[in-house]
């Protein structure tokens, strides 16, 4: 299974599924299926999403579950 940070990134930027779907050229429900992990994106779609959020692809998708951003921020504060 491929894990993703799409819901967090979308919430951070105040984006609706429809807006993100229109930006990368898919149906808005596809974004929902993608976020829920029901569907793994093609390399092309993953690269489009990466370019849209202007983030490296490994920040969006991972084969291992992501560490929550709040925990990452906390760990960074401790060091």
């Amino acid at each position: 299974m491929v894990h993703n940070r799409l819901p967090v990134l979308r919430a951070e930027r105040g984006l609706s599924r429809k807006a993100l779907a229109d930006a990368v050229g898919v149906n808005y429900q596809t974004i929902g299926y993608l976020e829920r992990g029901d569907f793994n994106p093609s390399l092309e779609l993953a690269l489009k999403l990466s370019a849209y959020f202007d983030l490296p692809i490994e920040m969006l998708f991972s084969l291992k579950p992501f560490t929550p951003l709040s925990q990452m921020a906390n760990d960074k504060g401790d060091t």
């Binding site: 050229g25 898919v26 149906n27 596809t30 299926y33 569907f39 994106p41 093609s42 092309e44």
Partner: peptide, 9 residues
Amino acid sequence: DKLDEFEMD
């Protein structure tokens, strides 16, 4: 051409 990759899958 009216379907996206999830729908094609």
